[in-house]
């Protein structure tokens, strides 16, 4: 495991190498060499099983983090190759030629996060949300609650009470509970 990680560090100047547990490690490589690293792992290091592709929205950093998770069926180890891409006009080289199922993931990511994979088959077709007009639905800034409140019709008549506030209204409405201040500059 460590041997592979050292090699990735040397070959693709991987950063942020973290062994999560025995047999599972994550590395971050530059966007330009991510697919090279994945291909190298597949063809030379025996990481032939493509487990999954995923994306995490680090909205506070303005980045999407793509993950290619590969499994080596002989050594029973996993390497997750991560790469960060910009959140504005996100695009990534397509990897559909590497494994047969990759285009499906890329099609989903295009729809769910708005990441483009130019050249990937059927990448512009809707995957699960046909006719979607809002921002890509898996981005962090898409507010599911707000959306559902706007889209659906909650049956009226519900109200709730916070125990502490309710007790205050009932038991001690006049007791001051915060220190009042006079302005300093008066």
């Amino acid at each position: 495991m460590n041997e592979i990680l050292d090699k990735i560090k040397q070959k693709y100047s991987a950063e942020d190498v973290k062994v999560q547990r025995t047999g599972l490690a994550f590395v971050t490589v530059n966007k330009d060499v991510a697919l090279d690293a994945v291909t190298w792992l597949r063809d030379y290091e025996g990481y032939s099983h493509f487990v999954m592709m995923s994306c995490v929205d680090w909205i506070e950093d303005g980045k999407f983090q793509l993950l290619y998770l590969l499994h080596n069926p002989v050594t029973k180890t996993d390497v997750g190759v991560k790469t960060l891409i910009n959140r504005d006009n996100p695009a990534m080289t397509s990897g559909h030629h590497l494994w047969k199922q990759v285009w499906t993931y890329q099609r989903e990511l295009k729809e769910a996060f708005g990441i483009d994979f130019p050249g990937s088959p059927r990448v512009d077709e809707n995957f699960v949300v046909e006719g979607w007009v809002d921002i890509p639905h898996m981005r962090r800034d898409f507010n599911t609650k707000e959306y559902s409140e706007e889209t659906y019709f909650p049956r009226p008549g519900r109200e709730t009470h916070d125990p502490a506030t309710y007790m205050r209204e009932q038991l001690y409405p006049n007791q001051p509970v915060t220190a009042k201040r006079k302005d300093n500059d008066k």
């Binding site: 487990v51 999954m52 994306c55 995490v56 929205d57 047969k100 199922q101 499906t104 993931y105």
Partner: peptide, 19 residues
């Protein structure tokens, strides 16, 4: 932050089934 499920049908029922 993110939960992503890898179900076997994701590839079995799309890429593999179509072929």
């Amino acid at each position: 932050r993110r939960v992503n499920l890898r179900g076997p049908s994701y590839t079995h029922a799309i890429a593999l089934l179509e072929d």
